[in-house]
Computed example of a mutant assay.
Amino acid sequence: MATTDQATTRQDPRQHAEACAERLRAALARAGVRLPSLRAGACFANFPHVELGGCHADLADQLAAWIEEHAESGR
């Protein structure tokens, strides 16, 4: 599994969080999911965080179903 290139963003934790948030946003969009509150969060002890935010219950249910389906299929 490929991950965000940490070598280019490791020196700036905020930049790394922004790159990871954007990657997750793009991946979710390909699956037809939009989390409006998804964004880079604050850094804690120099560890970058991504805030997933909130969404309505129907979207959470759809996202859970998609994850379950794809986790079972090994994708």
Rank of each mutant, 00 (worst) to 15 (best):
M1W: 08
T3R: 11
T4K: 06
D5V: 06
T8D: 10
T9D: 13
T9R: 12
Q11N: 15
Q11W: 13
D12Y: 05
P13W: 05
P13L: 04
R14H: 15
Q15H: 12
H16P: 07
A19G: 01
C20V: 15
C20S: 10
A21G: 07
A21E: 02
A21Q: 00
L24D: 02
L24Y: 00
L24R: 00
L24C: 04
R25V: 06
R25S: 09
R25F: 04
L28I: 02
A29T: 08
R30W: 07
G32I: 05
V33R: 00
R34L: 14
R34T: 15
L35R: 00
L35V: 01
L35A: 04
L35I: 03
S37V: 06
S37I: 05
S37R: 12
R39P: 05
A40T: 04
A40W: 05
N46W: 07
H49N: 12
H49T: 14
E51K: 09
E51F: 09
L52F: 06
C55A: 13
C55Y: 00
H56E: 14
H56L: 12
L59W: 00
L59A: 01
L59F: 03
D61M: 08
D61H: 08
L63G: 01
L63P: 01
A64V: 07
A64Y: 02
A65Q: 04
E68S: 11
A71W: 07
E72I: 10
